[in-house]
Design a protein around this nucleic acid. Structure first.
Lengths: 143, 143
DNA sequence: AAACTACTTTACGTTTACGTAAACTTCATC
DNA sequence: GATGAAGTTTACGTAAACGTAAAGTAGTTT
């Protein structure tokens, strides 16, 4: 039933996601990743791979490691399956959804402002072009 | 021509945007806000108000103060109006747009995953309900 | 066996974004 | 003129998220 049994070394994942090994060890320290060990060396599962991807996405969205860890932990507890945990998870999901909504609004506003700024820049450039033209034509017909 | 000449006190803006006065002074320290002074006390303009709003929005989107300041500075230089600055600004705007695109993708992915998690939770709850029912019906007919 | 490569732990350093306390000054109010 | 509220500077403290050696291990190549 388990479709993806592949494992990964630390440098493998580090290269794939362009994150330092130092960071990955730090994420493990903080309880966000839980690689197996073969002697000393870390063996990352595809579950770890997914989690790493989620960590990085979270970062891009402005989430702290602690916030991301909270979700991970909650999800793990949820899998253990008692009713209370399930309801807590549903609430957490609803809060995240609200957060995403706020971010979408923020992004939409930012886009509007970027478009406006862009337009103003292009206007200013046009103005400069005009002035150049004028300068040239007065050159061509000197006093 | 200047439509909004209102000014604000530090506590006024602090309340409006729910940010501490300490933070606002810090933003000033970092060169993100430039309130006038009347003796010692800071007088914030509507330009400062807009900037504060942008700072906070930036934070929600995961931007550092330094990144936000870079944009502010670039925009100020752009207003002074030479051609090179205008082109630099257009490039910066393009980069920001790309960043926003990535964030939109991240959010979309997060939404998909949240929906999936939500569905799995509800499924699990249904399963628990079934089990409860079964338990009750076996109670009603004891050995 | 020596060298190289990848990996490890330990531990101190750094930057960012503030919190918090201490000790003023201004200004309005009682 | 004492009190209180809102503001100020100065300065030390802190949590998060790593960076950066320092020194050792484990396996592989020459």
């Amino acid at each position: 039933m388990s479709s993806t049994k592949k494992t990964y070394s630390i440098s493998e994942l580090s290269r794939e996601f362009d994150v330092t090994t130092r960071s990955m060890r730090f994420y493990e320290d903080q309880g966000l990743l839980k690689p197996d060990r073969k002697g000393q060396t870390r063996i990352f599962s595809s579950k770890d791979r997914v989690r790493l991807k989620l960590i990085l996405r979270g970062k891009r969205m402005g989430f702290s490691l602690a916030e991301t860890k909270e979700l991970f932990d909650l999800w793990d507890e949820t899998l253990s399956g008692n009713e209370k945990q399930l309801y807590l998870m549903l609430e957490a999901l609803a809060r995240k959804r609200a957060q995403l909504e706020q971010q979408k609004k923020d992004i939409a506003m930012a886009e509007i402002e970027i478009d406006a700024a862009d337009a103003r820049c292009r206007e200013a450039l046009k103005e400069l072009e005009k002035k150049k033209k004028n300068a040239r034509s007065t050159e061509e017909s000197p006093s």
